[in-house]
Amino acid sequence: MRAQLSAPPIRRLVGYARVSTEEQATDAQVDELKAAGCHLVHQEHGSGASRSRPVLAKLMSEIAAGDVLVVVRLDRLARSVSHLLEVIERLEERGAHFRSLRDPIDTSTPQGMFSLQVLGAVAQLERVLIAERTKAGMKAAMARGKLPGNPGLRERRPEAIRVVAAARDRLYLDEIIISAQLWLPTVRRMRPQHSWDDVVRVLNSKGHNWTIERLRRAVHRLVREHIAEPALIKRSPRRAPEDRLMTLVAGIAIADPELTLREIAGQLERMHERTPRGGRQWQASSVKALLDRARRLGLVAPDPALGS
């Protein structure tokens, strides 16, 4: 008998369409994407000069391994070559691919990957040339007796200060939107049932570097931009000091339900948390006792999938 060949996995084509202003319509892009096989098309209105794209940020956080993000043209997705490479790198981390219908870019094919490498070289050359032009301009200005930098800021002109402040604010918003997929899911699972301190400790145990104030500021900003839910910034319920370990263990389990009891114990040790008896080494049984108590209080799902 001949061995039956398994059918290749079906890749899901996910479309993304963007126009610059609210007055423009994405209909033409949507039609072209659907004709290419995209049954799901995400539509966004936003300037091409800004990375503040909540629809794209949400899409990037939900795209699954094997999916293909499809756009009509590269300029519909990215504001620069470096931004494009950054988006594609994040897709590759999730096991997804990228395709542009009108450009020779398809990261699921060898030809498309070659084109991407060429773009990477162009981006590197672009950065070098910009740096060289900046240095040459500053050198020429100083040779003419001019100070480098913004003269309006040196003179403390209000309009110049406002422009710079607005630019910094846009940059800050761009940065937290781009990074949100790495930390916002944990915040959503833990807030407002758990304190900001517990959320920060759980995030930092995973390699982040948050402070309570910086995290609260970031989440408040996402709420103001209607990217995060207002419930996240509600006041957390007060708990007695002796309940802190229980809520912390519950928070770790909620943030990553796949962790075993031993893995939670290891995480607590890396966070330098003392056991209920004051010891430094955590046992799975101690973690289980705290989780059982949290479960009875409704802080953790009734049947957590935790092993020893």
Results as ranks from 00 to 15, higher is better:
Arg133Ile: 12
Arg133Asn: 04
Lys135Leu: 12
Lys135Tyr: 03
Ala136Cys: 01
Ala136Gly: 02
Ala136Leu: 13
Ala136Pro: 02
Gly137Ser: 15
Met138Ile: 14
Ala141Asn: 07
Ala141Phe: 10
Arg144Ile: 10
Gly145Tyr: 06
Gly145Lys: 10
Lys146Met: 13
Lys146Phe: 09
Leu147Gly: 00
Leu147Val: 15
Pro148Asn: 12
Pro148Tyr: 13
Pro148Asp: 05
Gly149Val: 13
Gly149Gln: 09
Asn150Ile: 10
Asn150Leu: 14
Asn150Pro: 06
Gly152Trp: 03
Leu153Pro: 11
Leu153Tyr: 06
Leu153Phe: 10
Arg154Phe: 13
Arg157Met: 07
Arg157Leu: 15
Glu159Lys: 12
Glu159Met: 08
Ala160Thr: 13
Ala160Ile: 09
Arg162Val: 08
Ala165Gly: 09
Ala165Cys: 03
Ala167Tyr: 07
Arg168Ser: 04
Arg170His: 14
Leu171Phe: 01
Asp174Arg: 05
Asp174Ser: 15
Ile176Trp: 00
Ile177Arg: 13
Ala180Met: 11
Leu182Thr: 08
Pro185Ile: 14
Arg188Ile: 13
Arg188Gln: 15
Met190Phe: 05
Pro192Trp: 08
Pro192Val: 08
His194Tyr: 12
His194Met: 12
His194Trp: 06
Val199Leu: 03
Val200Arg: 03
Arg201Asn: 04
Arg201His: 02
Leu203His: 04
Ser205Arg: 11
Lys206Gln: 14
Gly207Leu: 11
Thr211Gln: 08
Thr211Met: 02
Thr211Asn: 01
Ile212Trp: 04
Arg214Tyr: 00
Arg216His: 12
Arg216Gln: 13
Arg217Ile: 03
Arg217Gln: 14
Ala218Thr: 01
Ala218Trp: 00
Arg221Leu: 08
Leu222Cys: 06
Arg224Glu: 15
Arg224Ile: 03
